Amino acid sequence: MRKITLSNGDTVEVECLSCALTSGLIESDGGVVIETDYLHAHQAVAYRIE
């Protein structure tokens, strides 16, 4: 498990950040941009973008 500090300041402990996002365990602040059977795009969660 890794501790990762998200862009909103929350800290999560997950094995895989991408797996946690696609499974719905954690959500990005901006939410999902697009999700299909082959693609999942979301706003960056571990890096603050201004």
Rank of each mutant, 00 (worst) to 15 (best):
K3P: 01
I26G: 01
V45C: 13
S28K: 05
L25P: 00
G31N: 02
A44I: 07
M1T: 11
I4R: 05
S23T: 10
V12Q: 02
A46N: 11
D37M: 04
E15A: 02
A41E: 12
L6G: 08
H40A: 08
A44M: 12
V45S: 12
L6N: 04
H42C: 13
Y47P: 04
I4S: 02
D29N: 11
T5S: 06
S18C: 09
A41G: 06
V12N: 02
E27F: 07
T11W: 07
L25M: 05
D10R: 13
L21M: 10
H40F: 14
G30Y: 01
A44F: 10
V32P: 01
C19V: 01
E13P: 00
T11V: 15
T11H: 06
E27D: 10
E27L: 07
R2Q: 09
A41C: 14
T22Q: 10
L6E: 00
V32T: 12
L17D: 00
K3L: 12
S18N: 10
R2C: 04
T36I: 04
R48W: 13
V33I: 15
R2T: 08
E27N: 14
C19K: 11
V12E: 03
R2K: 13
C19F: 03
L17T: 04
L21A: 03
E35C: 07
S28P: 06
R48M: 13
R2V: 07
H40N: 10
E50A: 14
G30T: 07
Y38V: 05
A41T: 06
E13T: 11
V14P: 00
V33L: 15
L17A: 05
E27I: 00
E27W: 06
I26A: 02
A20M: 00
G9P: 00
E15S: 06
G9T: 12
V32I: 14
G24D: 03
D37T: 03
S18I: 00
D37Q: 06
I26W: 03
T5G: 07
D10H: 09
I4E: 06
G31K: 05
S7F: 11
E27A: 12
L6T: 00
I34E: 13
I49M: 14
S7L: 12
D37A: 05
D10F: 09
N8M: 14
S23M: 08
T5L: 13
C16Q: 05
L25F: 08
D10V: 04
Y47F: 14
A44Y: 13
V45G: 12
D29I: 11
N8A: 12
I26Y: 01
M1P: 07
G24R: 01
G9Y: 11
L25W: 09
Q43G: 07
L39K: 08
R2G: 02
Y38M: 07
T36D: 06
E13A: 10
S18V: 01
Q43E: 13
V14N: 01
D29K: 14
E15R: 07
E50N: 15
L39V: 12
C16E: 06
L21D: 02
G24L: 02
I26F: 01
L17V: 09
T5K: 15
E15L: 05
V14H: 02
I4C: 06
T22D: 07
E35F: 03
T22Y: 08
I26M: 03
I49E: 14
N8R: 09
G31R: 10
K3T: 15
R48A: 15
L39S: 04
M1W: 09
V33M: 08
S23R: 12
L17P: 00
I4N: 02
L25V: 09
G24H: 01
